[in-house]
Design a binder for these strands. Structure first.
Length: 228
DNA sequence: GTAGTAATAT
DNA sequence: AATATTACTA
């Protein structure tokens, strides 16, 4: 009779797709953390377990249970609020690189970068994540003699100068306003109350169809780079 | 509590 | 691989 309690893998249990509300409702009904009792005691004696060749589950202490519970919660949260992944379009990345270059290595930290980029809806986390990646890229390029070229720009049939960012670009005028999101983008920070029935399923996208080639070194690197 | 970074997770 | 989320630290 005892049904197994599954701490993960609700995928086949929940069908959210169209009505998230049911999930929210259901979520409210979930037991409080304090109600969750550590499953630290086996209900069967050792004899019985061995007699039936039952492998006892590993003990769960309070921490385990909490962790599992938390995991479940965040799982649900993710489901209910389908956040969009930010896409770093060449335009966005370009701006990012410019700003980072403009600040020094010392001052190029997420919050500052984010402020200077001044892009609507761009979060500090977004920038931090991208920055982490970017630093890795820089490290590879810089460190250990990248055999090929640390400065590759042999590309584009365009008219693009190798990205010599202009040292005196202090002003850094506002960017935004080109969010391809027809209507208006809603930051997804915080509240989960999105009572929009309209279109906001679209991926966030800054693809202004810009034909700048200046960022290509970065991209080129990712495509060409198979060194160690 | 805030922010930056490294480590993980999706 | 790209981006997000968490964990740790200051």
């Amino acid at each position: 009779m005892a049904e197994e309690v599954r701490l993960t893998g609700y995928d086949d249990v929940i069908t959210v797709d169209n009505d998230d509300e049911r999930v929210s409702e259901w979520e409210l009904g979930l037991p409080n953390v304090d109600d969750l009792t550590p499953l630290s005691q086996s209900l069967m004696s050792a004899e019985m377990l061995s007699a039936f060749s039952i492998t006892p589950e590993p003990y769960r202490n309070m921490t385990d249970v909490n962790r599992a519970s938390q995991s479940t919660f965040s799982d649900l949260r993710r489901r209910v609020a389908k956040r969009q992944r930010l896409v770093w379009t060449p335009q966005l990345h370009k701006r990012f690189v410019e700003v980072v270059a403009h600040l020094g290595v010392t001052k190029a930290v997420p919050k500052t970068i984010m402020n200077l980029m001044n892009v609507e809806g761009l979060s500090r986390e977004n920038v931090a994540s991208h920055l982490q990646k970017y630093r890795l890229y820089l490290k590879r390029m810089g460190g250990g003699g990248g055999s090929n070229s640390d400065n590759i720009n042999a590309n584009d049939s365009g008219s693009t100068v190798p990205m010599a960012y202009h040292p005196q670009m202090m002003p850094m005028q506002p960017y935004q306003q080109m969010v391809q999101n027809g209507g208006g983008y809603n930051g997804y920070e915080g509240s989960s109350y999105n009572q929009y029935n309209g279109m906001m399923q679209q991926q966030r996208d800054w693809s202004g169809n810009n034909n700048f080639g200046s960022v290509s070194a970065y991209q080129q690197h990712r495509m060409t780079n198979n060194d160690k």
